[in-house]
Write a protein that binds this DNA or RNA. Sequence first.
DNA 1: AATAATAGTGTTTTCTTTACACTAAGTCAA
DNA 2: TTGACTTAGTGTAAAGAAAACACTATTATT
Lengths: 222, 222
Amino acid sequence: MATISAETDYIQPAVTADTALFSVRGGELVALTVRREREPFAGWWALPGDYIRAEEALDDCAARALAEQTGLDAIYLEQLYTFASHYPGRWGRVFNVAYFALVPFAAVSPRNDENIAWQALSRLPRLAFNHEDILASARRRLAAKIEYSALALGLLPEVFTLAEVQAVYEAIKGERLDKRNFRRALLALDQLEVTGEKRQSGAHRPARLYRLREPSNLGIIG
Amino acid sequence: MATISAETDYIQPAVTADTALFSVRGGELVALTVRREREPFAGWWALPGDYIRAEEALDDCAARALAEQTGLDAIYLEQLYTFASHYPGRWGRVFNVAYFALVPFAAVSPRNDENIAWQALSRLPRLAFNHEDILASARRRLAAKIEYSALALGLLPEVFTLAEVQAVYEAIKGERLDKRNFRRALLALDQLEVTGEKRQSGAHRPARLYRLREPSNLGIIG
DNA sequence: AATAATAGTGTTTTCTTTACACTAAGTCAA
DNA sequence: TTGACTTAGTGTAAAGAAAACACTATTATT
């Protein structure tokens, strides 16, 4: 029987944690990218991420990179998949431990930094490394998860209309939903409450505004 | 804005692919373990796995380790989660990319090697490294996946009775299932066919034997 | 005052899931 | 050879979940 291979045989790769961060802007699903400053792929758009440090936990690395590069803090991150890739020359072997998360659009956009941008998934630019693969994989996971969880509530701003929530779900699932069935199911989650305020957005009846009842445990479901 | 950290800052860890391999023996869920021959944890039971080699893909590494250590070949492996751990001394940082898979019990048991053993999950010995955590995580994934897929059909031998399939599902889910409902749902998957043979196993009516219709695409579902 | 646009609301139908009990076919022992 | 025992095998009814479906309400605009 073969055993654990000889020590000379295994390699010493670099490990990164990279996050596919989703939001919805104008009913369209978007992902956050940051512009790389150094080689390789200097100047390219990439997912926020960093090399892991000695003694650092994977989750912590993903959270730290996100905080450093985007200012986002303390959001729910879920590990997605680990990708192995190989780059010629001195960069060598890289393992990407991919994470994904959802945030309200407003959580990042105020920071008007040219090196951070939301990209619509429907017209994504080329990304550095294998980040396009990571993003595609995260998008599939997102669509699958949303089927059986209240996960997408994490995408919402402070207050919102039910039509806006429906737009988020439709953007993620890529299909139209029935208004009455959607509202019934959403309210049955018992996570929303009415604010009493209304929002006027055109020459028509204004919509009631809602807020999340308990912002704490979102995304844990499922 | 902070950027990708300095090159001196990141570390060069070891990366392994380890597989939680499940089967069912006598209606009980079991996992395959191999005995470690070298330090650290020499003599302990561990999950089959190995350090990844230069240029090797993660999936290939998991498959190779499994083939070398157990003789199993060409089974469906699904990546589960990546764990980071740290061991004092010269072993340093290790990342375990965990996989999980299901096989018919007979696929491994004939090989009567003292250094390979199926362990009942209900009375698992201490395992090397963080392999108990990996196994616990894999068991949760298994239970979740089986809810909405035909995954557990991968656990079956060449031919089998419906009662045996039900025992597999009951072992994984940890609850009793209704015989009629189970059979109806199972046959509705349209993956089984009758062999025409029967199996006598006691002083009672013999059971019809079934086989898988298309052994190829199991586990892909869900 | 009429028009246009989105907000908001229940019921019916269909499908899925669950609960539930008896007959069939074999072995074994008296 | 017959009765007792054991597991195999089968259908239907009820409950619950999901899907289909259309009209009234409220505001701005002209």
